[in-house]
Amino acid sequence: MSRRVADLEEALGIRLIERGAHSLELTEAGQLLLSRTEGPMHEVAEAVAAARDGLATPRGRLRIAAPLLFSQVALGRLAAQFLVSYPEVQIEAVAEDRFVNLVDEHFDVAVRINPHRDSVLVGRCFAKDRLVLAAVPSVQMPKGRRDKPFRVPAVVMPTYRDGDVWTVRNGQFTIEPQPVLRLSSLLMVRDAIASGAGAAMLPQSIIGSMLETGELVSWGIAGGETELWILHTSRRLQSPKVRAFVEFMCNQYPDGSFTIPVR
Rank of each mutant, 00 (worst) to 15 (best):
G171Q: 08
P179M: 03
T27K: 04
Q31G: 13
G13I: 00
G39K: 14
A192D: 04
P149S: 08
G20D: 10
V156K: 00
K241P: 01
A45E: 07
V5C: 01
D97C: 11
P158W: 06
G54L: 02
E25C: 03
E105I: 11
V139P: 02
V84T: 10
L102G: 06
F150S: 02
P240M: 07
L68F: 06
E43M: 12
L211R: 00
R236I: 12
H116K: 09
P149Y: 05
L202D: 02
T174F: 03
S184Q: 08
R235C: 06
R151I: 09
C250R: 13
F82V: 01
R98L: 12
G220C: 03
A199Q: 00
A244H: 07
R182I: 11
L231N: 03
V242R: 06
P142M: 10
A21F: 13
I260C: 02
F245A: 03
L216D: 01
L231C: 04
G144E: 12
V89F: 09
R117Y: 11
V132G: 01
N114K: 01
A56H: 12
G20S: 15
E212A: 11
Q140G: 04
R77A: 12
F245M: 12
T167H: 07
V242K: 05
A127H: 09
A74S: 04
R4V: 04
L16A: 02
G171P: 12
D162R: 05
K241G: 00
A45Y: 04
N114C: 01
M141R: 15
A110C: 08
T57R: 13
E28T: 11
L55C: 11
G198T: 05
E25R: 15
L34I: 08
H22N: 13
I230G: 09
G214A: 14
L8Y: 05
S2Y: 12
A199K: 03
E43H: 10
Q31E: 15
E9Q: 01
